[in-house]
Write a protein that binds this DNA or RNA. Structure first.
Lengths: 230, 230
DNA sequence: GCATGTGAATAGATTCACAGCG
DNA sequence: CGCTGTGAATCTATTCACATGC
């Protein structure tokens, strides 16, 4: 019962997170007219371990040929299907400050089936502006706009203090996937997928490892390495 | 042997990645004049499990009081120190397209000890432009500029095809931490820390879960749910 | 022969559950 | 009594190593 092929097996989260990586390398291989690839080659291209590639791919089914490798075209279409990239996904961006603006102008969404269909902001002076062919609407109209043409993925690019209420509005408008760029923890119902991108967290993690590992080319001027490690 | 306090224990990677999260909530608590916090409260604020908080914090040493909780100020300073946030970190951004530009204009770096000291691009028309008080230099001058005032963290915001060579130049200039925004796998020597932020990967992961879970408010027009799951 | 696919081994992270202490 | 700190149990992910099949 259920749909044709894919979503019967349970695919580990870690694997899902790597599939897009494989996909990208496969596109490059295809563009270079390479028709077959081994797990080892693909692993190299993606900066991972070959056994990991094989185990990951085995979760989608057995699409390799022993002694030969994987057919690039077949893998491409299997992974695309698995990731749901056969269909288009509509995106809305909320918050058009520095970052939101940059995202809205980013070409490369459309390239792979992600289409920006809505731009929203709370600042009246921004309403009506057209970015990348899409008109900026007031965030109060989110629900109405979403009712006309559904939004699959909402991108939050507002300041931290209003991130939660924007998330609430997105959920209220029927959005089931959210990508949060605001430096704030937000809560969503179980049926909504949430991922976050947090610049300052990334920098702090790097800071941690810089401090330990290479205490070399570190500080700028003030506090070179006062209580350094090495 | 070795420095005063912190870096003797081995702190799990997963824990390191959460420390900045705790830190942020602690700043908010401190700003609200809260002096004590329980693992459960902190866990709520960060959207994680209370046992996880306790175990994470235990890796830094025992700074809690049984029956009471943790002192906000003490935790703040312990985590800050552990993450290396007592010192300032110098940042260079390479690539000043949409994204690089947005990052360069982003206030909030400086707030927590991250200071943009260099901006680099390969496009001659952008050289000399001043963004956020910093002059854009040619990427060929990276090494020279870095020699004058060392760069701790390099941010790559160039198109994928040139990401690797930019990484090489950063490493060559003595940078030991790199944050890569380009949708490309890059390789760096062992002594360099590398983290990545990849928008299109995040979207594809969300696509995967949208497809499975809520097959509700999905497609926009073309391919609504052709071979849908539910 | 060669590279996949996979059980088994290992490592790592999360969660449980409770002893221990303020 | 309440909350921390932590061993033990569980779950997840990675890696190994080799039988399997083209």
């Amino acid at each position: 019962m259920r749909g044709a092929a894919s979503p019967l097996r349970r695919i580990p989260e870690a694997t899902v997170a790597r599939l897009p990586l494989y996909l990208r390398s496969l596109y490059e291989l295809a563009a270079a007219d390479v028709t077959t690839v081994s797990s080892e080659r693909l692993a190299d291209l993606c900066g991972v371990n070959a056994a990991k590639v094989r185990k990951d791919l085995s979760h989608l089914g057995s699409y390799g040929t022993r002694g030969v490798g994987y057919d690039v075209g077949v893998l491409l279409s299997q992974i695309s299907r698995e990731l749901g990239l056969n269909q288009d996904w509509s995106i809305a961006i909320v918050g058009l400050g520095n970052l939101g603006h940059a995202l809205a102008n980013y070409r490369g969404f459309g390239a792979r089936g992600f289409r920006i269909v809505g731009l929203f902001d709370a600042d009246p002076t921004r309403i009506g502006e057209v970015i990348g062919g899409v008109r900026v609407c007031h965030v109060d109209d989110l629900r109405v706009v979403a009712a006309r043409s559904p939004i699959a993925i909402g991108i939050i690019a507002v300041p931290a203090p209003v991130a939660q209420q924007v998330a609430d509005r997105l959920v209220d408008a029927g959005v089931v996937s959210i990508l949060n760029f605001a430096p704030a923890v937000i809560a969503v119902p179980d049926h909504v997928s949430l991922r976050k991108v947090d610049l300052s967290i990334e920098l702090q993690i790097l800071s941690f490892y810089s401090q330990r590992h290479g205490a070399s080319g570190a500080g700028p001027g003030d506090a070179p390495a006062g209580e350094a490690t090495a």
